[in-house]
Design a protein around this nucleic acid. Structure first.
Lengths: 223, 223
DNA sequence: ATGTAATTGTAACAAATGTTACAATTTGCC
DNA sequence: GGCAAATTGTAACATTTGTTACAATTACAT
């Protein structure tokens, strides 16, 4: 098996190609190939193995109760599928996983994977970091979703960059990206920015943002 | 040290009191006591150890940019403080942790904790389950926050119980609980229920809910 | 530089939700 | 049973956000 693609996988971070080859030779694993468009895992299916995307791009799709398909997430190589579901209390895929391109998946059964974790401290730490960091990402996202007003979300977003002092910066994302991330409509972002400018809190020239009144901006994060 | 309180800790699930005692004797650890009201950990402080709440109740508080204090979460014994921050990419406490009662905290440094994980497979699996399950909980929460309408959240909530078929059930939470969980105002919950009843989708007599039209209910989860 | 696509600004109107207040009902307790 | 507290139902009105549409501006490729 070709391990050159695995050196960039977070799980094997810190190992060289030869080492990975040796490590894998010590445990059971298998490689499966999926044609573009085919089903890699089905919603509800038991998760009792680690599945690493070696090459290609996968996506998770939810089928809601009315039969509509909603794309949840894209997981390109080198990523792991449903890593939190191997050891979590719920052990079923929460989504359908579909190959968006031709895809190679490395599969290691849970028991074998445990051996790997115990034998190789570095892999253990890598895996702990992967699922912990995911958790942190989700927490962060919830923080933004919890701000009830759009101005509140924007204020939080700006203040995270600058740390409460007046300053200028350039947004590195489009209003559309922000709208998606916050779960709101794009024109609402533009309107909120406009009102914040009218209130003397910021100036916004395209993506160039200047904080004029850090105090007032902070107030918006209240509630 | 008294290990009787640890047998109910998720991390030591499956071990008896004597075993836990023996396990702990093999690694460095320490116990700290905090008076009610005192600061256990400060926002920004490095997280380089596992901290288990042995007895008492702690809370996490965020100080927002305008200086207001927001209570984030209560962690009673037997729970872990900031478990996702030991191995995650960010290694700083995201909140101030305060003792709400007199509290005992068991502290195990990261390196020692790693030894524990490697030596005792059961503890490893327990810890993986803890942080994975937390991740699942956060995902679930995001799902609800992502439904833009309150009726959508309610529909999702109901359908999760019943699985799309007409049926009756009794809510085990108050409207207030639901409102908090969804991040909306309480009267809005009541109004949404009223409108869903008016539309012939459900009947709601207090907490007794009957799904009259599973199709229409499913439709509400769209968008 | 020039044309096309992407992004941003703006407006009018609709829809959803928040806020506040209070009445009706239920629950738990004695 | 009867009381107090908690919960639920409801209404009027304010506020926020969504929706749709289009103009203005910017970014990008050729």
């Amino acid at each position: 098996m070709d391990c050159s693609l695995l050196v960039s996988a977070p799980l094997f971070s810190g190992y060289g190609e030869k080492e990975i080859e040796k490590i894998l030779s010590g445990i059971n694993h298998r490689l499966r190939r999926f044609r573009s468009g085919s089903l890699i895992a089905m919603n509800g299916e038991k998760v009792n193995s680690l599945r690493l995307v070696i090459s290609g791009i996968t996506k998770g799709e939810m089928v809601d109760f009315s039969g509509r398909i909603i794309k949840i997430e894209e997981i390109p190589a080198p990523g792991a599928l449903a890593a939190a579901f191997i050891f979590g209390k719920k052990n079923n895929f929460p989504v359908n996983v579909i190959a968006m391109t031709d895809v190679e998946i490395l599969i290691i059964e849970k028991e074998e994977f445990l051996k790997l974790l115990i034998r190789h401290e570095r892999i253990l730490v890598n895996f702990l970091e992967m699922i912990s960091t995911r958790s942190q990402f989700l927490s962060e996202k919830i923080k933004f979703l919890s701000f009830k007003t759009i101005k509140g979300k924007l204020a939080q977003y700006f203040l995270q960059r600058t740390g409460n002092k007046s300053s200028s910066f350039v947004l590195d994302v489009t209003q559309n990206d922000l709208a998606d991330y916050f779960g709101v409509a794009r024109p609402s972002i533009a309107r909120a920015l406009g009102e914040m400018e009218k209130d003397g809190i910021i100036t916004a020239r395209g993506r160039y943002i200047t904080i004029k009144d850090g105090e007032k901006l902070s107030m918006l994060t209240a509630e």
